[in-house]
Write a protein that binds this DNA or RNA. Structure first.
Length: 551
RNA sequence: CGGGGUGUAGCUCAGUCUGGUUAGAGUGCUGCGUUUGGGACGCAGAAGUCGCCGGUUCGAAUCCGGCCACCCCGACCA
């Protein structure tokens, strides 16, 4: 196909909008791929929609390849389905009423609706089933940001599997994992599949697909490539502290006015990694002491996991009541509250608060001086060592481009989706759900494929194959070149606008098609064109008569 | 929801503190001419309810009050 730029709605911008921060946000807006309508609500302009649909088609092909069936479910959803699964109360759910006050949901995923249909599955003979659709999702996001990375409305490919049992679910899960790997590979996106939190989806296990880039997740990877995890569940091995000489029993030392770890470590002349930090919290009305090493931070997500429930920091009054001391002087020794200690504190003797204002204890040892439940509650830090190989761990921002869940019977139970198994017994369908965001994928690709001049689209998702730049007076030769490329099957963007060469080249760099062909006055002399690769900037001269597909 | 910031031409911004001709610049846009392989130049021109509502004042983009929108940080979250 041949598309003339002079007839396209292609309002490229010389400058990025003032409020853009992320690179993908700036370049996609400048290149006329997208425009913002409202906070977190975006229009795909013609060029951007072509990219989106390229990504969609790749996803579609890989989903079909694992035997999934495409369908389409509505956005408007009766609230009763969401009430049944208990998700109606989630604050991020968009809710509305019709003229008769009937309640509806604009869903963020379609578990309820698909399971409504799955009730038509009657027999084990009809299993397994894998169904998917591409549909608009709504999310009352508290803080949209960064262009396409965090939005309130977006199109998602979500698929759902139903199996007889755990084994079948595992098979469906692995099929999706494989399909996702192939999808991101075809998009030339560097992605790490990591174990993740299931959040509001529920279920037993989930895997996140994180693409390094300006996103809201933090990816932890080992320099040797054998470990990758989301920061919220990552395990790292902290450095070994320099312990002072061991003591037979804790020894109280006066630390007047000293409340921070740095100050304690300096006053007592010990490694801050040989101290402990007490983080008193209140969960379900009771005080619990979270204990991490002095140089570590308490990871709130892991703490919730360890406690099995949400918590909040204790107030100063609650601290004084439970520990009988000021917040800067509390510790695990001789207290009545439950102590949840980080694994890093299992071995060795540490400095801890004495539960006596202005005093600390040296030589405090877990098991001997206090009892604690050990858990992984520290936040992984840059420079920790890898739990697999001892290599250095690295932290980087990443975009979550896909997330797959083993939901088990989380939705089939409340919605009563059952089947009759071979043994004649009625059983609950075992379910999985698998999401991927084409727009986020698109943004992540830009994060990973760009330079100072603009985007460098991978061939697989580029909106057109060839950017054909025509310089004045060469219109007919350009038409000839375009026709030739079109015959060879390439999609051609023909820049026939009445602009200067410099502007056309700058726009070509910004828009970022993989190949640029220039028809200029030199062509009149030798009948050849310049072919330039966007990725490498290398240029070669090829006679028009020798031109074939440049894909 | 808490903290901070910004709303003036399509875009990027000055002007607001210290109220006072007809509200400005760059870029973009229109026309004419010269140019034409990396965002050219000249001339002429179009374009703004100064976010909205109210108040103070002889007079408000500017001061006061309220509201709205957008951005950033945090909380939350995929």
């Amino acid at each position: 196909m041949i598309r003339r730029a002079s007839q396209l709605f292609l309002p490229t911008l010389r400058e990025a909008p003032a409020d853009a921060e992320a690179i993908s946000h700036k370049l996609l807006v400048r290149g006329a791929f997208i425009r913002q309508v409202s906070a977190g609500v975006w229009t795909f302009l013609p060029l951007g929609w072509r990219v989106h649909e390229k990504v969609v088609q790749i996803i579609r092909e890989e989903m079909d390849a694992i035997g999934a069936q495409e369908m389409l479910m509505p956005v408007l959803t009766p609230a009763e389905l969401w009430r049944a699964t208990g998700r109606y109360e989630i604050p991020e759910v968009f809710k509305l009423r019709d003229r008769n006050e009937r309640e509806f949901v604009l869903p963020m995923t379609h578990e309820e609706t698909i399971t409504f249909h799955a009730r038509e599955i009657q027999s084990y003979r009809d299993l397994p089933q894998m169904l998917y659709h591409f549909q608009t999702k709504e999310r009352d996001e508290p803080r949209p940001r960064a262009g396409l990375i965090r939005v309130r409305e977006f199109i998602m490919k979500d698929s759902y599997s139903y199996d007889r049992d755990e084994e079948g679910l595992d098979r469906s899960f692995q099929l999706h994992k494989g399909a996702y790997d192939r999808i991101f590979e075809r998009c030339e996106l560097e992605v790490y599949a990591v174990q993740a939190e299931s959040g509001m989806m529920g279920g037993s296990a989930s895997m996140d697909f994180l693409a390094p880039g300006d996103g809201s997740n933090t990816l932890v990877t080992c320099e040797r490539g054998d470990y990758a995890a989301d920061l919220e569940v990552a395990r790292g091995i902290p450095r070994v502290p320099e312990f002072p000489a061991s003591l037979d029993a804790p020894e109280e030392v006066a630390t007047p006015g000293v409340a921070t770890i740095e100050a304690v470590a300096e006053l007592l002349d010990v490694d801050d990694a040989a101290t402990s930090k007490a983080m008193p919290v209140v969960a379900d009305g009771r005080v619990v002491l979270g204990l991490v090493r002095g140089d570590d931070r308490l990871d709130e997500v892991k703490m919730v996991e360890a406690l099995g429930e949400a918590f909040r920091p204790a107030t100063e009054d609650e601290i004084r009541e439970a520990f009988g001391a000021d917040p800067g002087s509390i510790g695990p020794v001789g207290v009545a509250v439950e102590v949840v200690a980080d694994e890093a504190l299992r071995e060795g003797q540490f400095v801890a608060g004495a539960n006596k204002s202005g005093h600390h204890l040296r030589g405090v040892q877990a098991g001997r001086d206090f009892e604690a439940r050990f858990a992984n509650i520290r936040e992984v830090r840059e420079g920790d060592t890898c739990p697999n190989c001892g290599g250095k761990l690295r932290l980087q921002a990443a975009i979550e481009v896909g997330h797959i869940f083993k939901l088990e019977t989380r939705y089939t139970k409340p919605l009563g989706a059952t089947f009759l198994d071979e043994d004649g017994k009625e059983k609950l369908l075992v379910m999985g759900s698998y999401g991927i965001g084409p727009a986020r994928t698109m943004a992540a690709i830009v994060e990973q494929h760009h330079d100072e001049d603009g985007i460098r689209w991978p061939r697989s998702v580029a909106p057109y194959d060839v950017h054909l730049v025509v310089l004045p007076g060469l219109e007919e030769r350009a038409d000839e070149v375009a026709a030739k490329l079109d015959d060879a099957g390439d999609a051609v963007l023909l820049d026939d606008r009445d602009q200067r060469a410099g502007e056309k080249f700058a726009d070509a760099d910004l828009i970022g098609l993989p190949v640029r062909v220039t028809v200029g006055k030199k062509t009149l002399e030798d009948g050849a064109v310049d072919i330039r690769a966007r990725e490498t900037g290398t240029e070669e001269r090829v006679a028009i008569e020798d031109l074939g597909s440049l894909r």
